[in-house]
């Protein structure tokens, strides 16, 4: 049985190569149970690939991932009972309404019909999707798709939430709602991993961060340790060795 002393997620030597491109190179991450973990990195640094391999949606070339001590690739079914996932940009059962998607997935997980109905109702109301009762998911806006994705991840009350870019394209009011939900989830002992490249958001929400650049972990640990004395933004630019452009050229635009 998984215990709370086991980390929520531990990856060891995760590696993935696409063609000649090494997307994820020997990634070791430890997400302590009960922590709110932010995975940050520039675009294309390997965040999404790492998360997909950690939850069992992409087979790693090497390495392993454990969720509360359960090996994702050896004991897949048990690992999947423990996590709720919001991947970036995947399709859904597009010809169902939001309520139908939740009902369908809840029943498919073997939950009691009454429980599914009650939770779906509550999730739709809290995430303000209940007004779109007749709208099929394919007609949802990008923000609504994020919200129904989050509802799907929460439905079975998982112990670990893995959310890839949960705030992208979400309006400020909905973002505040989602932040509150996630804080409550973490406050009650749940563990959360989010990926993002919005540093302010990560600073505001997370107590632990991991910085990935070019498929490698360049820093990881409690937020205060990673950012040192300055802001996470400064620490990030230092860590990934980025050079901010935009100051040169374009003379015709300003003349």
């Amino acid at each position: 049985m998984p215990t709370t002393r086991e980390p929520a997620l531990r990856t060891t030597g995760l590696r993935k190569v696409f063609g000649d491109h090494v997307a994820v190179d020997d990634v070791d991450l430890t997400v302590p149970a009960g922590s709110f973990y932010g995975l940050v990195g520039p675009n294309g640094s390997g965040k999404t690939t790492t998360l997909a391999m950690s939850v069992g949606l992409l087979r790693p070339d090497a390495g392993s991932a454990e969720i509360f001590g359960v090996d994702v690739w050896r004991d897949t079914v048990r690992a999947k009972e423990l996590i709720g996932v919001l991947p970036d940009g995947n399709a859904m059962p597009e010809r169902l309404t939001g309520r139908e998607v939740l009902t369908y997935l809840g029943l498919l997980r073997g939950m009691e019909p009454a429980v599914v109905a009650e939770r779906a109702d509550e999730l739709l109301r809290v995430l303000e999707l209940d007004s779109a009762e007749r709208t099929l998911v394919i007609e949802y806006s990008t923000g609504m798709r994020k919200k129904i994705g989050l509802a799907i991840a929460l439905l079975h009350a998982p112990r670990l939430l893995v959310l890839d870019e949960p705030f992208e394209a979400v309006d400020p009011v909905s973002a505040a709602t989602i932040r509150t939900i996630l804080r409550r989830f973490a406050g009650n002992g749940g563990s959360v991993i989010i990926s993002s490249h919005v540093m302010a958001l990560v600073e505001q929400l997370c107590d632990h961060v991991g910085v990935i650049s070019d498929g490698r972990v360049v820093a990881a640990g409690p937020l205060a340790d990673v950012r040192g004395g300055g802001s996470l933004d400064d620490a990030f630019v230092d860590l990934v060795g980025a050079r901010t452009g935009g100051a040169e050229g374009l003379a015709w635009l300003t003349s």
């Binding site: 139908e100 009454a114 007749r134």
Partner: peptide, 27 residues
């Protein structure tokens, strides 16, 4: 919008069943 026919009224609820095959069939 990717070929979505217009709809009137609230859709009929999915059957309250714990049989996975039946619920997928309903979908």
């Amino acid at each position: 919008r990717g070929g979505v026919p217009s709809r009137r009224g609230t859709p009929r609820p999915l059957p309250a069943t714990t049989s996975g095959a039946r619920i997928t069939a309903a979908k």
